[in-house]
Design a protein around this nucleic acid. Structure first.
Lengths: 100, 100
DNA sequence: ACCATAGGCAAGTAACCACTTGCCTATCAA
DNA sequence: TTGATAGGCAAGTGGTTACTTGCCTATGGT
C-alpha cells in the first residue's frame, strides 16, 4: 500500500534512520540507537526506535534478517521509485522553470 | 523545510489532489472539490480541501495565481526530486546529518 | 443596489501518532 | 545454572492533525 510508504517517510526520525542505513547497512537495533544519539543528538528510547523500524519495514523500506540473537536491518530503496513515477510522469531531461 | 514536503505527502486526500492537478492544471477550489466527490467518492467539505491545498502550497507542491474572484492551482513537481535524491544516490559519499 | 458565487479565518472536536513505561522472551558466555 | 545482552509486546499519555461548523470578505452578474 502506498499509504504505508508515505506515512513512513513523514517522520523525521525515520528519515534519519534511513540515512544511517544508507550509510551503513546491516545495523542492529542497538547500533542504530547509539548512532541516533551520538551523531544526531536524538534522545530517544530503544523501544521508540524499534517501533520506527517496524513502520519502515511495513512500508518495505527496511528489510530484516535474523542471526542468533541479532537482527540486522537493511535499506531497500525500491519503494521510493514509485513516488516519482506517480507525478513525474513527464520525465524531464533538464531543470524546469522555477517560478518561486 | 523538507519536513513540510513529507508531511504534505503523508495524507491520501492530498495525494489525490496532486493526481487531479497533474491531470488538469489550473483548477479552482470548487473544481477540485467536485472532482474529489465525483471521481473519488470523497465526501469532504470545501474547507477541508482548502486546508489541504494550503498544506500543499506550503510544501511547494502547489502554486497558486489569482484572477478576479478565482484562484487557480497548479502542480509543481520540482520538490519531489529531492526525495529520491536523498536515498537513491549511487555513490558512497554518505549523507550529511540533516535534521529535517 | 441586490444576491449568488468563490474563497478565507478561527474555534472546537475526534482520531491518530510518537513516545514512554513496564514486563516479557530468546540467545550466548561464564 | 546464572547473568548479561538483544529484542519484543502492550497499555497509557501528550501532542499533532484532519475535519467540521459558523461567520466573514471579495468579486461579478442582473
Amino acid at each position: 500500500m502506498a499509504d504505508d510508504l508515505f506515512k513512513a517517510l513523514a517522520d523525521s526520525t525515520r528519515r534519519t534512520i534511513l540515512d544511517e542505513l544508507a550509510e551503513k547497512s546491516g545495523q542492529t537495533l542497538f547500533e542504530i540507537c547509539s548512532r541516533l544519539s551520538m551523531k544526531h543528538q536524538l534522545g530517544i528510547s530503544r523501544q521508540a526506535v524499534s517501533q520506527h523500524l517496524a513502520v519502515l519495514e511495513a512500508a518495505g523500506l527496511v528489510e530484516t534478517r535474523r542471526e542468533g540473537r541479532y537482527k540486522f536491518h537493511d535499506l531497500n530503496t525500491a519503494p521510493l521509485r514509485q513516488i516519482t513515477a506517480r507525478w513525474l510522469v513527464r520525465d524531464t531531461s533538464g531543470p524546469e522553470e522555477n517560478s518561486s
